[in-house]
Design a protein around this nucleic acid. Structure first.
Lengths: 114, 114
DNA sequence: ACAATATACATAGAACTTCAATGTATTTCA
DNA sequence: TGAAATACATTGAAGTTCTATGTATATTGT
């Protein structure tokens, strides 16, 4: 499994979490599993990494949280994307596209268009 | 002009500098201009940002430096990519491709199709 | 019944990072 | 003469990821 640079992880964590939450509310542990699954095991967030990021995102007003009891009675802190976060996700997509084009030009190879 | 997130800048600075240097030796100020030109003004590194990154890259053994007098007699610190840096650039390219694919997938599909 | 594993959230602290601000100099050009 | 561009460097503020550690409950295998 490839170990990505801290920088690459940093650039993608928030857009990826926003993407996941844009498809429906979720909680920390489930987000980790979802990203692991989608990336086919290539991105596995440590919980100690994800939770502070979720807190930061909530503080910035991108998402909101609420406690809920799961099927099994265990309490979970759910997160839901809010208006600000939707706008932020759009912005992140735009920026990724631009940067990807610049890099693609520099490398003169075809990268996956989004 | 779009202002990119610190994170996105962080993820791309080293690969971009390595790319520029893989096309020929250069010095700080020229690298800033080259990236600005290639990105059509969208990426403009502050000198206070670039120089510490160059120092870090040299310390890590990705590039080497040497003083040279330019046409006008002004001294410039040139940088040249070395073996380690070429390998690092290949790795960065690979990783960018993988992450781009994952993100591309996330932005295209529904996580929980009903 | 018991142990191991998976689920679930949280924080502290180490080791980074970017970048604005500031400083020093030289060259070019109106 | 003076402004702008060229050229490199460092400091310090504010932020970042991630390891380690802690708490606790649910599930699964033997």
């Amino acid at each position: 499994m490839t170990k990505f640079s801290k920088e690459l992880v940093g650039a993608t964590t928030i857009p990826i979490i926003l993407s996941v939450l844009s498809k429906g509310e979720s909680y920390g542990y489930e987000i980790i599993q979802a990203v692991k699954s989608i990336s086919e095991g290539q991105i596995t967030y440590a919980d100690g990494t994800l939770y502070p990021v979720l807190h930061k995102m909530e503080k910035k007003g991108l998402i909101e949280s609420f406690w809920k009891k799961g099927d099994n009675g265990r309490r979970r802190k759910y997160y839901r994307i809010i208006e600000n976060g939707i706008q932020q996700l759009d912005l992140e997509k735009e920026n990724w596209l631009i940067v990807n084009q610049i890099i693609s030009k520099l490398w003169k190879i075809d990268l996956n268009p989004i």
